[in-house]
Write a protein that binds this DNA or RNA. Structure first.
Lengths: 233, 233
DNA sequence: AAACTGATAACTGTCGACAGTTCGACGGGC
DNA sequence: GCCCGTCGAACTGTCGACAGTTATCAGTTT
């Protein structure tokens, strides 16, 4: 997705750390110890520092001088800014997809919706992977690699954010109907409708995420566990 | 703009190299020799490599394995993808500015347009700095730091692209009236008009840039100078 | 007992040197 | 005369070690 894997050790380490972050092995707020990780991977600190630097520039890690790197832990205001950017990018992509759509890509969109509805009927929750799959299919239909790349970077931050939540957002029936409506708008070539549907969809997802974050924050503060990460001078 | 300058030597080197790239001291296609630059700056190669890595992730440099880094040299198709992203971001920002505008920011927009018109009357060309100033004022009015950050990254690539052209695009009278119309739309709170004006404006700028690139490419191929950068296997 | 101070330890930031690879030049063979 | 194999220089990729800084903790003092 990002480029060639064989651009040195740093490249491999980037992908390894990225997976650890996205899968929640390294939860938000985790501090990264350079010597320890370098020793575990059997490499030097040079390539590791380069890998960390790249992930910092992607927004998956944050870097504080003389204290090292930590997995990005978003606050509510960060979520708002994040979804503003995501809406700008994905709404534009939805418009483009409605204009540039090709039969094959419309079929793929419909197929993802169909698989989602089936999964929704068997289990109660819609798997998050299928949600990601829909949005990525839409990016493909937009035929704008540059925008797709940026959307993927934003999506990654959302994944990290979700990995820090114990109760994952349930992606309700509403999300599924949103997807189906968007697929229809793209199929018909109605760019404006696709964009406004996307905007409403993302606003809903943002609200769900914020509510989950706030409720879990309350549940966490009650027992006496201190706030993770996020230091105030 | 990007963050704290004092996050080590790498941070300072990033800013130094960034200025060299944006001002055209390092023209597009230039290869960066690590040992030479490190020696000139009086530092080691470690921080320098980190700085280069960051600029690669920003898109100002490109990196080829075992061959080092070079200043990004855009092809026409890159320009198209770049302006698709820029349009997505700046149109959304224009909409936001029309919604969230504050009196002080509207005044600033008008002031930039006024200064641009004065400069346009004295000299024939509109200084590029004033164009950048307008777009940055609009980003401020949008009150979306995350989008503003991404717009700035895209703007930087456009600046690099322009630095490789001998005859800078003249930013005609049309661009100035576009700016004034956008300022008016933002002042009135007409988000849709601000967005569509921005889209048209960027389409014009893109066309101007592509024409300049193509004409200069023809003039360069005639004398017998080989194509800079851009290696095909 | 609480607060301040000093030393100690751990970690990041930086450096110089080594290993591996690629590009170019030179010489030999056909 | 042209092509191919080999040698060599230059550069990137990687490593281990040193220096600087910050946090922690014990000891002392009020």
């Amino acid at each position: 997705m990002t480029g060639l894997v064989h651009r040195g050790l740093a490249g491999q380490v980037v992908e390894m750390l990225r997976e650890q972050i996205l899968t929640g092995v390294l939860p938000p707020g985790s501090r990264l110890n350079e010597v320890e990780i370098a020793r575990d991977l059997g490499i030097s600190r040079g390539p590791l520092r380069e890998a960390i630097g790249q992930l910092v520039s992607e927004g998956l890690l944050v870097h504080v001088p003389n204290k090292g790197a930590a997995v990005f832990a978003a606050r509510p205001e960060d979520v708002a800014a994040l979804f503003e950017l995501r809406a700008a990018l994905e709404c534009a992509a939805a418009r483009m997809a409605a204009h540039r759509r090709r039969p094959q890509e419309v079929i793929r969109l419909r197929k993802v919706c169909e698989r989602s509805r089936k999964a929704r009927e068997t289990g109660r929750k819609l798997p998050y992977d299928l949600d990601l799959d829909f949005h990525r299919s839409l990016m493909d239909a937009a035929h704008s690699p540059r925008i797709a790349e940026q959307v993927w970077l934003v999506q990654q931050q959302v994944i990290v954010l979700r990995s820090g939540l114990t109760s994952r957002t349930t992606h309700t029936e509403t999300s599924l109907t949103d997807h189906e409506a968007m697929a229809g708008a793209v199929a018909e070539g109605d760019a404006d409708r696709a964009a406004s549907l996307m905007e409403a969809h993302l606003a809903l997802v943002e609200t769900e995420l914020l509510q989950t974050m706030q409720s879990e924050a309350r549940n966490e503060e009650a027992p006496g566990a201190q706030r993770t990460g996020r230091s105030a001078p």
